[in-house]
Design a protein around this nucleic acid. Structure first.
Length: 317
DNA sequence: ATAAATCCTAGACA
DNA sequence: ATGTCTAGGATTT
């Protein structure tokens, strides 16, 4: 199906949105179309003036579906106004204006970020491609075949090495166990969109019974925040990876008291990676600082400090 | 004082 | 380049 979506009153930059590390299934083709697979449908998107041109593999993937996926219901100008608390975020917002969070499928998002730990974006894309190709459903579209992301039910039934062969390594057992507990209904991810951020996060991190194995192995604090932000409507979630942590250390130390600052600095000197205690403290402070849309601030800071600022510095700007 | 919970940190992992 | 797990040590109760 083909249609156009007017974006005159709802600005979006498709490139920033689909290529900022929040989702791994999109690529920009030589002809200028962004191509991705979403929930069993193939989508192509290209901007034309004040519209998005869209082609999809199914009548079910209609304008409503795409608007929802791209979060065109978010009042972006208002959100960006609310998070502009200082010069750094202001620069990021100016430079990356139009970057939007998207509304991902909770299971695919969970699986993607379990795979994402300790890997770079290229490797993550490769894993997700392999998983889809070997376990997903084929979708024919414009004389080519694409593959949907496998369901939790499918992955729950797969024992053993097939998944490791997709390049997951030790993440394979995490993914399978997580898929089983989701397929069995022990965790219903969708329900977590309706509860508070704190409660939803504690469910994602919970154990089967006290002291026992985790319900969703492979989901720690950072992955939980990604799931909450990218697929469960918790826009205040503020995932902290190494890049964001560096940004906090460089620009936001004044938000912390002296004791915490010296502790953070000694932590970074001897350990490198952030511990859970520090993660909880830092993310809470940043959520308070940026407010209800802290997650948007995180995406802008992430992309800006990771890509643009180093680029500008290297050119002496 | 002791044991049992809980908190926390250092290393392992592709 | 990077986030979670696990074991075991420190801390609290």
């Amino acid at each position: 199906m083909e249609f156009q979506i007017s974006i005159a009153s709802t600005p979006i930059d498709v490139g920033y949105t689909l290529d900022c590390g929040q989702v791994f299934r999109w690529q920009l083709n030589y002809d200028g179309w962004w191509l991705g697979v979403v929930k069993g449908y193939v989508l192509k998107i290209k901007r034309l003036g004040d519209s998005l041109m869209v082609k999809t593999s199914s009548e079910d993937a209609d304008e409503q579906f795409v608007r929802r996926y791209l979060r065109l219901d978010d009042a972006l100008p208002k959100i960006l106004y609310e998070i502009r608390k200082d010069e750094l975020i202001s620069n990021a917002v100016s430079r990356l204006n139009g970057l939007r969070l998207i509304r991902q499928d909770p299971w695919e998002c969970t699986a993607s970020f379990i795979c994402a730990t300790y890997k770079n974006i290229n490797a993550i894309q490769q894993m997700i491609f392999s998983l889809s190709r070997s376990l997903g459903e084929p979708i024919k579209f414009e004389d080519a075949t694409y593959y949907s992301f496998p369901t939790a039910e499918t992955i729950a039934k797969i024992d053993d090495e097939l998944i490791k062969a997709c390049g997951l390594g030790y993440r394979a057992e995490f993914l399978i166990e997580t898929a089983r507990n989701i397929a069995s209904g022990d965790v219903v991810l969708e329900n977590l969109a309706k509860t508070s951020y704190e409660n939803a996060r504690s469910v994602l991190l919970s154990e089967q019974s006290k002291g026992k194995k985790k319900l969703l192995p492979g989901v720690g604090l950072k992955v939980a925040d990604c799931i909450l932000l990218f697929s469960l409507e918790h826009l205040e979630a503020f995932p902290i990876d190494v890049w964001i942590r560096r940004a906090v250390l460089r620009f936001y130390l004044h938000l912390f008291d002296e004791a915490k600052v010296s502790k953070m600095i000694s932590n970074v000197e001897q350990n490198g990676s952030i511990g859970p205690a520090e993660y909880r403290q830092v993310s809470e402070v940043m959520r308070r600082y940026f407010g209800a849309y802290a997650g948007y601030a995180q995406e802008y800071l992430y992309h800006y400090t990771r890509v643009y600022e180093p680029l500008l510095l290297s050119r002496g700007l």
